[in-house]
Write a protein that binds this DNA or RNA. Structure first.
Lengths: 340, 340
DNA sequence: TTGTAAGCGTTATCAC
DNA sequence: GTGATAACGCTTACAA
């Protein structure tokens, strides 16, 4: 009747539930039950169904199933970018936890622009996901309205606010910045310079850093703003520019470990010993931070935990459970190593 | 009639095509056409439809659309892991190119095990994707059979074979290894040691390296096998073990830039100058390779091109175009820098 | 425990 | 150019 659209293949239409039912000598409803709720079907019948499934090579059509049940078992993940070492561990953990519960991830990359995010949402919602994971807490009004209207469980991640759209897993970037600033000030650094990416969460951390230094009567000596994505190259170049412009500083506070690694490398290339002549701090505690030479003093974020807990929250919410704590602060940990 | 399953929301069912049709005073079929093929509908009618869409807040149901049209506009991506700096750029490029054409990525992570891949495939196919991207060319028989049966366009990526399932974008790892080996041998290195991850494509590259050294009458001095995922730590530790065991070598050939960076760092920690006392080579040309100190001699792979071309192949194939070149070798480039 | 009937929200097809 | 009708393949709800 219908032939595959793919030229390389001559195949009849895929077997349906009815085909399985026919070969099993049962009704399609019984087959459906045997597949989805076998405990409601006599074992012998289940066995017959399984045999028929194998015989026909049946693969359920989730499009039809989702339409009928209005449960798609799809979770939409909205991230600014995937090639970001920070997010990628969260995504992996999220995916693993979700896959285990039978959900599949729909990947939606917005590229750090809010308008694109709003656009994306229509695309996402058209897929009728059972849940949505949104990176960050700043969204356009349209997005908020449309999402709330859709009545889909939502988890915002990687940030903190008392008023999330629905649920939230993250931490306060301002507090993390604060913690880092205090730590460095208390270690005696008094002429800090910043190498920073200008994204929203980065800016919050920066405010935290600056505020805490101020509390110690310290002002920022200089600041270098670098574009996203952060890289070793940008870290090196930023420090080079800072040093060449004659900035006097004793610690370089970087908005990420990657920038810190670059800054350290540039310092070493200039025969500056780290941390003796110039200290450097990072953020994120990426895998290399502990093994860099010198090991990078940084702020540890449990990136996988964000993904894992977001998955749990979402799955529970979809299951209709009451979420006792819809706001989860996973916090952060100051990690003192050798670079500062 | 039906209430949202999400407790926080009291919302009626989402507006359907019929709702839009009713408010616009048209048939649902006309609304569908106005949305999908506006050129077949009178402009005035299209305008009426658009107004009704806005008024109702209509968002199409892709589940229903996909079921009816048997086009899901979903592309399934199967990768061993996302938190791999090699794949992640490919994924990003693939996603971007696909999103532009109206496709959404379904993310399926298999974790380097072939059996898991076979399992995953049922999950994937149940979603009725319009196309599938498979990482690698080694799959279980079941997977091959099931996929071919599904008559879905498939692109295998990141490898090379004259007999792909369907289409292919990648390069020969063996040749890449060969090229690297020749390069190093010709530079005069004669006592190579290997630091290598034991994945399938890595093994192929290793064979290439070993074979080309052999052609120059050189045998591998020593080899350290490290688990996945590669990391700076593993690179350091592997070199440390190699050196501590008294291995005599003049170049460390690493299966990835990440390992190379670690090896370089360990060498420097031991006051060994790179490349004078010990040379190190990597693979992949990750962003940091060019800016490392010393810059890493490596093999460049255009990772984004793999994703981009895979997307084009898939989209064309879905569109019913005849694919002139279903096998695309994107090749590789030897990049001589300072570390070897 | 199994079966029947009626949707789910779209699009294909054919008629007007 | 627009509309009526019948799928698409499954699940819900109810009957047996």
């Amino acid at each position: 009747m219908k032939t595959g659209k793919h030229p390389r293949q001559i195949s009849a239409r895929a077997p349906t539930l009815d085909d399985v039912a026919r070969t099993a000598g049962l009704s399609s409803m019984t087959v459906s039950r045997a597949l989805n709720t076998p405990q409601l079907v006599r074992p012998a019948t289940v066995a017959k169904v399984m045999a028929a499934v194998t015989a026909t090579g049946y693969i359920p059509n989730a499009l039809a199933g989702g339409l009928a049940s209005s449960r798609s078992r799809l979770i939409a993940l909205v991230v600014p970018q995937i090639n970001n070492p920070m997010f990628v561990d969260t995504i992996q953990a999220l995916n693993d936890a979700l896959a285990q519960r039978g959900y599949t991830l729909l990947l939606c990359v917005t590229g750090y622009s809010e308008t694109a995010e709003a656009d994306t949402v229509a695309t996402i919602l058209s897929r009728r996901p059972d849940g949505i994971v949104l990176t960050g807490i700043h969204h356009t009004q349209t997005l908020k309205r449309v999402i709330m209207q859709a009545a889909v469980p939502v988890v915002e991640i990687w940030d903190m606010t008392p008023t999330p759209l629905d649920m939230l897993v993250g931490f306060s970037h301002e507090k993390a910045g604060n913690c880092l600033g205090h730590f460095l000030a208390q270690k005696g650094y008094s002429r800090p310079a910043l190498i920073w990416t200008d994204d929203r969460r980065g800016r919050q951390r920066k405010q935290g850093v600056i505020a805490s230094f101020h509390q110690h009567g310290i002002t920022i000596s200089a600041e270098s703003s670098v574009p996203l994505p952060a890289s070793l190259q940008l870290g090196r170049e930023a420090l080079a520019a800072l040093l060449d412009s004659g900035t006097s500083c004793d610690v370089i506070v970087c908005s990420s470990d990657t920038l810190a690694q670059g800054a350290i490398m540039e310092a070493q290339a200039r025969q500056l010993s780290v941390p003796q002549q110039l200290a450097v701090s990072g953020f994120g505690d990426l895998a290399f931070a502990a093994w860099n030479q010198p090991a990078i003093t940084t702020v540890h974020i449990d990136r996988a935990a964000i993904g894992h807990r977001a998955a749990t929250l979402l799955a529970d919410s979809i299951a209709g459970l009451t979420i006792a704590e819809p706001i989860i602060d996973i916090g952060f940990t100051m990690v003192e190593r050798d670079s500062a």
